[in-house]
Amino acid sequence: MDNFDEKSGTVPSKTPWGQWWQTMDEVCIMVDLAEITHPKEIKCIFKPKQIEVNIKGKTIIQGELTDLVHADDAIWTLEDKRQLRICLPKSIATPEKCWKSLLVSQYEADVITFDKMEQKMTLERFQTENPEFDFSGASVTGGYQGGGPKLPS
């Protein structure tokens, strides 16, 4: 699936501290750091439904995640001492579990971004179900909700 994401790109939702995006399998967070930061200055606490990120003693992200994650498999990396990347494996990995926001009532994707997230996750599902095809450059149209196009009523 990583190859699909590399080819198709991400659909990020911008935040005051950086951005977050998702795939069927995980939620990714990128925190832009204003100054050079060392790993010992970062504290990340992951729980199945909670996250807390502290940088140099300041809380950057804290709250209840939109859905459950495999907290024991969550990782963070520091890139060029200027960006913190966090990967949270989703407990339920399906297009129907497209997160509208990173935290409950915080960092919600706007309507257009959320629609693009759902479309990308649908293409990701198509890729998983049909590995002999390449859906990375494909596009789909229509309103999305629950991992697939809405059928006309």
Rank of each mutant, 00 (worst) to 15 (best):
V104E: 13
L65W: 12
S91G: 15
G63T: 09
Q106P: 00
V111Q: 08
L88Q: 01
W99P: 07
K58V: 14
I61H: 04
K56R: 12
I55G: 00
K56D: 06
R82E: 03
A93K: 14
D73G: 08
I75S: 14
I75T: 15
D72H: 09
E79I: 15
Q106G: 00
S91M: 14
I86F: 09
N54A: 13
G63K: 03
C98D: 06
L68C: 02
P95W: 01
V69N: 10
I61W: 07
E79Y: 14
T59M: 08
Y107I: 05
L88F: 03
P95H: 01
I86Q: 05
Q106C: 08
Q62E: 15
W76R: 10
K58G: 01
L65A: 12
D73E: 15
I86R: 01
Y107A: 02
T66M: 14
W76P: 09
A71P: 03
K81W: 14
D72G: 02
A93R: 14
W76A: 13
S101A: 13
C87T: 12
L102I: 13
W99N: 11
H70S: 07
R85M: 06
P95Q: 03
I55V: 04
K100V: 01
A93H: 11
E96I: 03
E96K: 15
G57K: 04
D80L: 11
T94S: 12
P89G: 12
A93L: 06
V104P: 00
W99S: 11
L68H: 05
C87N: 11
K58E: 15
V104T: 12
V53R: 09
T66Q: 13
N54M: 13
L88W: 02
N54E: 15
E79S: 11
S91A: 15
I61T: 02
C98K: 03
S91R: 12
L88E: 02
A109M: 03
C87D: 05
P89F: 08
K81Q: 15
V111D: 11
L84K: 02
E52K: 05
I92P: 01
H70L: 10
E108I: 04
A93W: 03
D110S: 05
S101T: 13
K97T: 05
V53L: 07
E64N: 11
L84E: 08
I55D: 00
